[in-house]
Design a protein around this nucleic acid. Structure first.
Length: 203
DNA sequence: ACTCGGATGACCT
DNA sequence: GGTCATCCGAGTA
């Protein structure tokens, strides 16, 4: 486990989205450490991407983190009740990000289970184990990620991403989810996931 | 295994 | 006032 440094994030969201697959997302809460392997991502390419919050240079208080330095968190509220966690890519003023859509639970399963279903891990049914972290809103709930970590530096000690001993896997490239409004951009193959992994939201 | 609708609030026109 | 990078429970099969 080696924490990724700033330079790792200094690249196009399209490249970063693929590079993040297989890495470990670590969140240190007050009492424990929660870890999940990143198994599904989407690239949001900013200025020229009709699906991106920062399309055509749109800049609001909400999206400010996407315009900031690479290697920080962008967390926003969706549908009034869920959070989505993104990793800011590229560089300052180039507003690109990678949405994390699926995690495989690695460490802190008990806490994730309580956060999601308010019951211990051993009481979960098989389908609930998958549902712990197989979606962008679900994984935020499982880890306890909310908007108060928006803008957090991912090279710090609270929330960061690690490389681990490489295990080879196949990457599937497909269309992004939930962006039917984005005209031609809806068909771009900018979603990536680890083939055959159980924690992919939409296989 | 599915489809369908409700929840719920920030954001933007 | 409409939209939305979602999830879950209820209903049907």
């Amino acid at each position: 486990m080696k924490k990724l440094e700033r330079s790792f994030y200094n690249k196009s969201a399209l490249v970063l989205a693929k590079d993040l697959l297989g890495k470990y997302l670590v969140f240190n809460t007050d009492s424990e450490r929660l870890v999940g392997k990143i198994v599904e991502t989407e690239a949001y390419m900013g200025f020229n991407d009709k699906a991106a919050h920062t399309y055509n240079g749109r800049r609001t208080p909400r999206t400010e983190a996407m315009y900031g330095e690479e290697g920080h968190a962008y967390v926003y509220l969706i549908y009034g009740m869920y959070n989505c966690f993104n990793v800011v890519a590229a560089e300052k003023e180039i507003a690109q990000a990678v949405l994390i859509r699926g995690l495989e639970p690695i460490e802190g399963l008990e806490a994730m289970s309580l956060n999601r279903f308010n019951k211990p891990y051993e009481k979960l049914k098989g389908s609930q184990i998958i549902a712990l972290t197989n979606g962008p809103g679900k994984l935020c709930q499982a880890l306890g990620i909310t908007r108060d970590i928006n803008g957090e530096d991912l090279t710090g000690n609270r929330l960061y991403i690690c490389s681990v001993k490489e295990v080879s896997f196949d990457i599937v490239e497909t269309k992004r989810i939930g962006i039917d409004y984005a005209e031609e951009a809806r068909d771009f193959l900018w979603r990536f996931y680890i083939k055959d992994n159980k924690f992919v939201s939409v296989p």
